[in-house]
Design a protein around this nucleic acid. Structure first.
Lengths: 95, 95
DNA sequence: AACTTATGTTGCATTGTTGTGCAACAATGA
DNA sequence: TCATTGTTGCACAACAATGCAACATAAGTT
């Protein structure tokens, strides 16, 4: 099994990073906009973004002092939708 | 974002567990068969299986002293295929 | 030019989580 | 009883997430 596939899933196994991807699914955003949205230290946010970029899920584009982020591969959104459809099982309690 | 979605991706972020799912995608197998196939301690294997069952990706069915395993939701296989199609990019080196 | 603001990153220490193997145990069936 | 199959408790190692302080970079101000 491909190591990069494992890396992809590791990158998706974090609620902050899923939140970031959900925001970006609606369009381009910069890190500072995400920072305003999330109750999270910007250091931590920066590192989560770095992880998403490193796995190739997110593209970044410098714009002045800002970094514009966008989804690099729309197929990731298909994965997210499938995953949500699997886990949205109200009748089945977990934990 | 749903906690169970995060759990699902965490469960997929491990090469042993992906290997197990790939084996099960071809049909039912018991843990001891997987144990013969993989160079891994049975303790560890048992725990990986437990994780897959706990997230609802794998079903188990006792059969004598054996536990027959099978994929609980075929949509997981769609996720795996999508993920592989994203990460199978020979031209793009990573690491 | 020097100063300031806005934005984002890195180094470090700390904490929390996950993976692992050994030994012991439990359950089933011959 | 014995073999087969699988699990659990424990300890340890490896990895990942976090926040603070300090730094870097770009652009605007004086």
């Amino acid at each position: 099994m491909n190591k990069r596939t494992v890396m992809l899933f590791k990158a998706l196994g974090c609620s902050w990073r899923l939140k970031i991807l959900e925001c970006l699914s609606k369009g381009t955003m910069c890190i500072c906009e995400l920072d305003d949205l999330f109750a999270i230290d910007k250091t931590t946010l920066s590192r989560h973004v770095k992880a998403l970029v490193h796995t190739g899920l997110v593209k970044e584009n410098r714009n002045g002092t800002r970094k514009e982020l966008s989804i690099a591969d729309r197929r990731v959104l298909e994965i997210l939708e499938l995953a949500k459809s699997i886990t949205d099982v109200p009748s089945q309690e977990l934990e």
